[in-house]
Design a protein around this nucleic acid. Structure first.
Lengths: 112, 112
DNA sequence: AGACGTACTACGACAGTCGTACTATGTCTG
DNA sequence: CAGACATAGTACGACTGTCGTAGTACGTCT
C-alpha cells in the first residue's frame, strides 16, 4: 500500500491544523484525531510534529493559546486550546491559493 | 503573486527530475531549464538542490551518471549526464501513485 | 577584451519532521 | 481495586532536504 511521505505533506501540516481551527478552537489531541478522520485514516500527524507546529504558529501569531478545563461533556485533563487569529486566517487562505498553483505544477511531472 | 514554497515541492523535486530522465538521459543545466519550461516558468529549481538530488539519487541507484562531450549540435563544455535506472523508474511510478493519494488528502483541508 | 551563457562544485546554515522516552491524569473492565 | 487503555501532552537530539553564498572554468559573441 502506498504511504504518504512526510516530505510531501510537510508544507501542508500547518494548513491542515489551521483548517480545523477555522471551525473553532481546538486542542492537540482532538486536532490529531480530526486530521485522521478527515483524511479517512490516510494520514496521521505525529505528535511531535503537531506540537512543534503549535509553538511555531503561535510565535508567528497565526494562533493563540488558552488553557481550559474539559468541556461539560468533557472527560480527561485540562487542555491547551488554540484559536486561529486573523493573521492565521489570511495565511490559511494564501496557502489554499498556493495549493492550486502547486498542484498544477506537480501534475505536469506526473504520469497519469 | 502566489509563490510556491520549497516545503511543498520538497517531496517532488526528485520526481520532477526523474520525470525528465524518463524521456532519456540528460544533465543538470538542461534539466533545470526543462523544469522551468514544463512548469511554465512557475517553478525554478535551485542549482544546489538539483545537484544534491543527483548525488542522493545516484547513491540510491535511481540514476547513473556518465561524462560525455556536448552533442553534435552541442555547445559548451563536457557534461555529466544522468540516466534513470530500473529502480529509478519504479520509484518514479510509486511517487506518481503516492501523488494521487496525497492530493486527495490535502484537498480535504483546502477551502475551495 | 569583456560580458554573458553554460556547467557545475563546495560548504555551512537552517527549518521541519521524527524517533524515543517520559510524565500524569482520567476512565473502564474484570 | 488493580491494571490496562485513552487522554493530553513535554523534552531532546538526530536527520534530511533545501538554500544562500561563493567560486571555478570553459565557450561564444560582440
Amino acid at each position: 500500500m502506498v504511504e504518504i511521505s512526510s516530505d510531501v505533506i510537510r508544507g501542508y501540516n500547518d494548513t491542515m491544523i489551521l483548517c480545523i481551527l477555522m471551525k473553532g478552537p481546538s486542542y492537540g489531541y482532538e486536532i490529531s484525531k480530526q486530521i485522521k478522520t478527515i483524511s479517512e485514516e490516510k494520514y496521521v500527524i505525529k505528535e511531535t510534529t503537531l506540537y512543534s507546529a503549535f509553538t511555531r504558529m503561535e510565535k508567528n501569531e497565526f494562533i493563540e493559546s488558552f488553557v481550559a478545563d474539559p468541556g461539560p461533556d468533557g472527560n480527561g485533563k485540562k487542555r491547551t486550546y488554540y484559536r486561529i487569529t486573523e493573521k492565521g486566517k489570511e495565511y490559511y487562505r494564501e496557502k489554499c491559493e498556493e495549493w492550486a498553483l502547486t498542484k498544477d505544477v506537480i501534475e505536469k511531472f506526473i504520469e497519469h
